[in-house]
Amino acid sequence: MKNEENNAAGMIRSVAPYLTLGIQIAAAVVLFLFVGKYADDVLGTKPWLMVAGIVVGFAGGMIHFFREVVALSNKEEHERITKN
């Protein structure tokens, strides 16, 4: 792990865990949107379950995002301490 950030490969390596964070939020919303839409079609409760799905998906996406960010920054802090 010597001067990791100075080459392109090291850069990709340090950035990689963050690459899928953004799409994860949107993917969660879209997933629950379609689940809600399907449930609407089955139960005949248009459009309410779809709206609920969007809310649940957004909340879940944000929870996942912040948990992941906290875990990653803890890990980075840990690595910084053990390196010095």
Binding site: T20, Q24, A27, A28, H64
Partner: peptide
Amino acid sequence: LWPIMIPIEVLGLFTKPFA
């Protein structure tokens, strides 16, 4: 929260190979 989080985590497994 498992019914919400498990689908999102499973979805997260697929985003990387998809990209």
